[in-house]
C-alpha cells in the first residue's frame, strides 16, 4: 500500500459524496443520478465511473475482482486492480464467488451472483435515448415524463431498415416499469441476468458524471415488440475449445496455423473453474 496516498485514493469527503449519490440511485432504480465525478489517475472513458464507485465502497474486509470484457488479465483490468490494491491494501481475486465487489467492463459473470456481492459496471454512455436526442436537457425531461417513444422508435427504425432489431451490446432495458436504462454495453446475452438479480448492480459513468443502479430483485425487461421479441446473440453450436462449455458467451478466435475459427469462454474465470472442476481440483 502506498503510504503517500489517501486510503482508496480519493479524499474522504469525495467518497462520502459518491456514496450519497449511490444511495439515491439505489432508491430510484434506473434513474441517472448526476455526481461530481473526480479526475482519476486512470483515463476518463477507461472505467473511472466504476472505479470511483469501487473506491468509495471498498472497506478493509472486501475482496475485489476486476474484469475487462470478460477477462481478469486484460491490461486495463490489471491496471485498475493495481490502483485499488496499492491505495487500499485489500485483497484482489479472480474467483467470482469469493469477491465481494466485482468491477466489470461490459460483462456480467457467467456464475450467478450472490446476495452479498455488488456488481459495478463501467458505463461509457449512460443515456439510452442519446441516439435519438442529443441534448442532455431534453433527455432528462423525456425521462421525467416517462416519454419513451424515442427508445422504441430507435428499435422500430432498425426493423424497418434491416428486418430485425440490430442493437449490438447496450440493448436498452426498462427498470422497475419506470426508467428506460442503458445496461452499459453488456452483450444482449447478459441482459436477462439483470432481471431480479440477487446482487446489487451499480453503474458508474465517470466522464458523463452519472451513477445509477439496479437494486436486488428488481424487474428489468429488455425493450422489444410483440412481433419482434428480444433476442440474445446466438451461441448455438459453439463450445469452448478449452473447457467444453456451451451456452456461455464466447470469444471468437482464429487458429494461427489452420486459419480455422474456434471459440473460447469469454469469462476467463468461469472457464478456469470449469476446467478445474473437471480435474476434480
Amino acid at each position: 500500500m502506498n503510504p503517500l496516498s489517501n486510503y482508496a485514493f480519493l479524499d474522504e469527503s469525495s467518497k462520502r459524496e459518491i456514496r450519497r449519490a449511490t444511495l439515491k440511485a439505489i432508491s430510484i432504480p434506473g434513474y441517472q443520478v448526476p455526481f461530481a465525478s473526480r479526475e482519476m489517475p486512470i483515463a476518463r472513458g477507461w472505467g473511472t465511473g466504476g472505479l470511483q464507485l469501487t473506491l468509495s465502497l471498498v472497506g478493509k474486509g472486501d475482496r475485489v475482482k476486476v474484469i475487462d470484457q470478460g477477462a481478469d488479465e486484460s491490461v486495463n483490468a490489471v491496471n485498475i486492480k493495481k490502483l485499488v490494491s496499492s491505495t487500499t491494501g485489500v485483497e484482489v481475486t479472480e474467483f467470482t464467488a469469493s469477491a465481494s465487489l466485482i468491477q466489470s467492463r461490459h460483462r456480467i459473470p457467467e456464475e450467478p451472483l450472490q446476495a452479498d456481492q455488488i456488481l459495478i459496471l463501467q458505463v461509457p454512455i449512460p443515456e439510452p435515448l442519446r441516439l435519438y436526442e442529443r441534448s442532455e436537457a431534453a433527455t432528462r425531461k423525456l425521462h421525467s415524463e416517462k416519454e419513451y417513444s424515442g427508445a422504441y422508435l430507435i428499435l422500430f427504425e432498425q426493423i424497418m431498415r434491416y428486418g430485425r432489431v440490430s442493437t449490438g451490446a447496450d440493448h436498452p432495458v426498462m427498470v422497475n416499469d419506470r426508467y428506460v436504462m442503458a445496461p452499459s454495453p453488456i452483450p444482449r446475452f447478459d441482459n436477462p441476468k439483470m432481471d431480479s438479480s440477487d446482487a446489487l448492480i451499480l453503474l458508474g459513468a465517470g466522464r458523463e458524471k452519472k451513477i445509477y443502479a439496479v437494486p436486488p430483485h428488481t424487474r428489468v425487461v429488455s425493450l422489444d415488440f410483440k412481433d419482434h421479441p428480444f433476442e440474445i446473440e446466438s451461441v448455438e453450436g459453439r463450445c469452448c475449445r478449452l473447457c467444453g462449455a456451451t451456452g456461455v458467451y464466447f470469444d471468437e478466435l482464429q487458429d494461427n496455423e489452420t486459419g480455422e475459427t474456434f471459440y473460447q469462454c469469454n469469462d476467463t474465470a468461469h472457464c478456469l473453474s470449469l476446467m478445474n472442476a473437471e480435474d476434480g481440483v
Partner: peptide, 20 residues
C-alpha cells in the same frame, strides 16, 4: 480519455455487433 478508450479491447461488444 474517451477517444483513447478506443484502444481498449472491445472483444465482447464487437462480438455482439458482429452477431447483429
Amino acid at each position: 480519455g474517451f477517444i483513447s478508450h478506443l484502444k481498449l479491447p472491445h472483444y465482447v461488444t464487437f462480438q455482439s455487433e458482429l452477431d447483429s
